[in-house]
Design a protein around this nucleic acid. Structure first.
Lengths: 336, 336
DNA sequence: CTGTTAGCGCGTTCAG
DNA sequence: CTGAACGCGCTAACAG
């Protein structure tokens, strides 16, 4: 292995000069710099990152905590993170927590062990212990930002969309089609993002002077299967809803299947509205009307935000709200 | 920051003893070990991984090169890798290559920079330069294994299924339903895995004394959109196929959409057969008949294989072939 | 079984 | 602008 010493010898300079020429080129005279660069090329020197990291006390790595990497929604966010990370020479360490806090703990330990400089959290939990009711960012926490979700009490830097507004827009769309009996298939209980969507759903109902009916809200967990189950439950009501709003596309796709299995026509008997706009949404039958989130951009902005924090600069904004849009397709239809 | 020195002082032993007590506990007397452990707990010491990695000259990290992380098929494999990695205290570094060789290069450099100890490659290329026609593993290459794909000439350790056999089983199923005009929507050109599937397709045709017709094979790139386009092309033939075998589920789902848009009934007019058995396959309409691959296990075995190689033990087997199964659902139907 | 010692490869003072 | 020298925190001989 060729080390900085070899290069120094070859270039006839000291190792300090080699180090400087590479890290802070402008602090070195052009002449020496060229000598060094030549020596580097000739020897095929590449700095030993392990040694660099050790010396610099950082890893140039960010940890991405994903509740479920198999969820295509998260995958797109990771893509965004990855792109920015690569651009800034950062590495992305993947932590698939499978929804277990315990795993989050394991992974966030990586930061205290210096294996990662910061964390991007795609799930809904802060991966460090903290007192319930805490209202401020603990300075002892490592740099981290949340993507999609955010925290109700603690001002954690976060990137996402306005979920209340998005849900409201979606449900208003259903209302505008004449639906009055609209169900909501919710996501996991402790997801603030789902609470927001529920709130948007309620707001929309209210704006049409409709009463919020608890029985029309069924809980799922973002999976296809849970959407199927939830819809099955809803279809057993004496009065079936004429439309259903789902907290994500996968549950919507599951719900559609349940409708078909129950002999309902789509969208004739039931309109279905999704959330996220995953690629598959365009390939369902009927094509799924849904709320589009800029997933790649969410990832990019989250990484950028984390980079800001890591560089010590106060982040441009603590909470980044990105635009969403209602993607009209064929799964919602005017009530006849 | 509390270092190994502090612990040594606190425990009244040398730093070497602390190091040993933690890394090789059985080489230390129980008494000293306990002293050390107490000191560790009292001081809250955590070893600096950066220093350890530097000293040990390895990172306990594997790099996973993914052609497209948004593809749910890969996501499941990564899950498997992740699980085993966590179990063995390895970290997973993610490299989304987006199909660019250039990116693969960037990432595989991480290994030479000691940032990763080995590579698991989910794509179809060997991420290092090598002479075309090379027939053996270059000892200069870092430890790596391929999952799903493998290499035609070079005996790269690989995990996957028997794609020829799997495709043959699938197409024979179509044949057994009376189909004689069976199309194949192929994957990317340089995918050996797709070549194998094509071979299986040909074998099946041959077993039924059917002629292989080039026009019935259309190329896609594994995406939903490409499946849609490919099917559209196929539907424009004077004689439409009565069944189509797709190299993956996403293309199959795209193809189904194309059929619907063209007014074909599914599976009445056209039977569709997928490959992979991604979760969405059960939620299409009709439910997609497809070939199931044990994705999680592929990931697990790939990681295990890499671990074997890293530990110097000659891997139990150089090529691991896992079982597949034909998942009969509703998208294939007897020809009437 | 334990302690002493010598670096790993690099970044970073501090003089010059 | 450049070089000598130190040490980051830890592991791995080696000697005792």
């Amino acid at each position: 292995m060729v080390t900085i010493k070899d290069v120094a010898k070859l270039a006839g300079v000291s190792i300090a000069t080699v180090s400087r020429s590479l890290a802070e080129p402008d602090k070195v005279s052009e002449k020496t710099r060229n000598k060094v660069i030549q020596a580097v090329e000739k020897s095929g020197y590449v700095a030993n990152t392990l040694a660099q990291n050790f010396r610099r006390r950082r890893s140039n790595t960010v940890l991405v905590l994903v509740p479920d990497i198999a969820n295509p929604f998260f995958a797109n966010i990771i893509q965004g993170i990855e792109r920015v990370a690569r651009q800034f020479k950062y590495r992305v360490l993947l932590g698939d927590t499978q929804g277990y806090d315990e795993n989050e703990r394991i992974y966030s330990d990586l930061v205290s062990h210096k294996q990662a400089d910061g964390i991007i959290c795609l799930g809904r939990n802060i991966p460090f212990p903290y007192r319930k009711g805490r209202q401020s960012l603990d300075p002892a926490w490592p740099p981290f930002v949340m993507a999609c979700e955010y925290h109700r009490d603690i001002p954690v830097p976060a990137v996402g969309i306005d979920n209340v507004a998005a849900a409201e827009v979606g449900v208003r769309h259903l209302l505008s089609l004449g639906h009055r009996h609209i169900a909501y298939i919710d996501g996991p209980e402790d997801s603030i993002l789902c609470e927001d969507r529920l709130q948007g759903y309620k707001n929309a109902l209210k704006s049409s002077q409709l009463r919020y009916e608890k029985g029309l809200v069924v809980q799922g967990d973002f999976t296809l299967a849970s959407g199927y189950r939830a819809m099955t439950t809803l279809l057993q009501r004496k009065q079936r809803p004429s439309a259903v709003f789902c907290a994500n596309d996968e549950m919507a796709i599951g719900a559609m299947q349940a409708c078909r299995d129950a002999g309902c026509e789509l969208p004739g008997d039931i309109s279905v509205l999704g959330f996220d706009d995953i690629v598959f949404a365009e390939y369902t039958s009927p094509r799924l009307t849904t709320i589009h989130q800029p997933r790649n951009e969410i990832g990019e902005r989250a990484m950028t935000l984390l980079l800001d924090i890591l560089s010590g600069a106060s982040p441009a904004a603590n909470r980044v709200i990105l635009p969403f849009s209602l993607e009209l397709r064929d799964s919602t239809k005017r009530l006849e």
